[in-house]
Design a protein around this nucleic acid. Sequence first.
DNA 1: CAGTGATACATGCAAATGCATCTATCTTGG
DNA 2: CCAAGATAGATGCATTTGCATGTATCACTG
Lengths: 159, 159
Amino acid sequence: MTTKAPTSSAVRLAAETWESLFRSQVAVMRRLQSGQAFKKLPIKEYDVLFTLSRCPTGKLRLNEINDHVLLSQSSLSRLVDRLEKRGLVERSIAPDDGRGILLGLTAAGQELQKEIGREHIRDIAELVAPALTAEEQRELLRLTEKLQAFVAHKQPRES
Amino acid sequence: MTTKAPTSSAVRLAAETWESLFRSQVAVMRRLQSGQAFKKLPIKEYDVLFTLSRCPTGKLRLNEINDHVLLSQSSLSRLVDRLEKRGLVERSIAPDDGRGILLGLTAAGQELQKEIGREHIRDIAELVAPALTAEEQRELLRLTEKLQAFVAHKQPRES
DNA sequence: CAGTGATACATGCAAATGCATCTATCTTGG
DNA sequence: CCAAGATAGATGCATTTGCATGTATCACTG
């Protein structure tokens, strides 16, 4: 056994922290997704284009994308169908795994991502930058990265 | 004019901060909603019960609940339909405004909220407490509260 | 290297969601 | 007090989502 029994106050602190993180995300997301930029493309679909644009190789496996997004596997599959039908992404078979699908942006997809991205980043800055000092933002960035790293590496549950 | 032109690095910092906050929320939420507790009730529906349980008066207006949740007004209306059909909440007309609906938990709703809540808070603690020190959690709590407060009070956009 | 189970993605179908719109109530200006 | 506009919530309908399952490929075992 390596786990310690958590005290009641530790449990409460964790719960309050998560609650606040969650509500702040809801509040910010609500504003962002009502932005003018997302009349052209829903924010979830944009997020896939964005994720692809960040990737050095330009292509990602569907299951990798799925880790970044709060969608079921089947929903992502169909979301990609829509993007493909609009000519924004292309599917190709993963060279090292015949079951896998690599997704890449088309030229039109890159174009639209950049276009929406410019508006989106402006909205983000307008919302976040005046709310916290630069120092506070750096700390928030650090803490959320640390949290994310822990959650990503933790076993899904052994009970 | 009271707004300053943001520097490019300030914009980038804000964007990275938001990105990290968002992804960490996705990672944690993904784990939480796969928890055993949410076989009984989807997490979004639980969230409404939880929100009602936290309220001192025990009743909230639908539009107040809507601010806490990332759902359209119509989706919340139907989510409440489902909760009502299961006998977990009760609608009543707001005494001070004939258009408004007050929502309150039934006994069964309180019961189920507590039951799920017990499991849920354990999952949260298991995920968040070991990821960050108590000090870090307090700081994350403070920063997300500050962000949320700013976003809530900011005008929806004047451009 | 055949057989068994796991993994990656797609698809049928029922349920949930959002947009547009509707009704009812409230608020305000004359 | 009435008319015009605003606001709260409900509802029709098309789209999106998730669950269960299907198909194809991979990994492992003997």
